[in-house]
């Protein structure tokens, strides 16, 4: 599950990280306002196309199937009359459907952007170092924490107190302490070493950082943003 938060590969057409963030924000605003099938569908296919552009085929197709199933359930329920009890389920499905494009837009940010691209984009947005450094450390650390967690779970299996359903029910405090203490102490130790190594590479120097990776907004970026804005305006004016 931790690999969901890491860079997976570059897309066909490169999109500026800033564009991705703007699209994400616009999508979340649109999702809050709009739930009619036509615009929702447009929003979905917009983010779907972006996922395909980002070569996230498996994830995109999973989302497509999920969306199709949810539409299908909706249609089925509409065809037959609604029993009261099913309504809450339907409500849940519809709300989830509204959020699907936003989650996909988020996945585009996370999965198709390199940490160095993030840094370069943040630099252009004049985001202070206090955010950019922790931000890049966060993405670097997700897989590391995943490894640590796996190792701790393995060690707990050997010792006889694995994080199993039975143990969580019968002695929650104990297994909780056993998982969290090594996790915290070990990551702090790793972080200490990482700090030392980074400082030795001149991180935090008072000179302005340069970046080998260039980010530039192209025509394509403006088109995407324009489309997302149009979707937003439509969702407001269509009332």
């Amino acid at each position: 599950m931790f690999n969901d938060f890491s860079f997976q590969g570059e897309g066909f057409i490169k999109i500026d990280p800033r564009t991705k963030m703007i699209i994400f924000i616009l999508c979340s605003i649109a999702a809050l306002r709009e739930s009619r099938t036509l615009f929702q569908g447009l929003l979905f296919f917009f983010t779907f196309a972006l996922l395909i552009n980002g070569k996230q085929f498996i994830f995109a197709i999973k989302m497509l199937i999920l969306y199709g199933v949810m539409i299908g359930i909706d249609l089925l329920v509409m065809m037959f009359c609604l029993p009261e009890a099913l309504m809450i389920l339907l409500m849940g499905i519809r709300v989830f459907r509204m959020f699907l494009p936003v989650m996909m837009a988020f996945a585009i940010i996370i999965k198709t952007t390199r940490v160095s691209e993030f840094l370069a984009a943040f630099d252009k947005m004049h985001v202070p170092e206090e955010i950019t450094i922790p931000f890049s450390v966060m993405f670097r650390f997700f897989p590391t924490i995943g490894e640590e967690w796996d190792n701790i779970q393995n060690a707990m299996k050997f010792r006889g107190f694995a994080l199993t359903f039975k143990n969580i029910i019968t002695r929650p405090a104990f297994v909780y302490e056993c998982s969290i203490v090594p996790l915290l102490s070990d990551t702090v130790l790793i972080a200490d070493e990482l700090s030392a190594a980074s400082l030795c590479r001149g991180l935090g120097a008072n000179t302005k950082r340069t970046s080998l990776v260039e980010v530039r907004m192209g025509v394509f970026d403006y088109m995407l943003i324009g489309f997302a804005i149009w979707l937003n305006i439509m969702s407001y004016t269509a009332y």
């Binding site: 450094i133 922790p134 966060m138 924490i145 980074s198 400082l199 935090g204």
Partner: peptide
């Protein structure tokens, strides 16, 4: 905040989210 504090902040953010 010094650089090492910022790194620590990133690490704890991961812990927070991962948990």
């Amino acid at each position: 905040l010094q650089t090492k504090d910022l790194i620590m902040a990133g690490v704890f953010a991961v812990l927070y989210v991962a948990l």
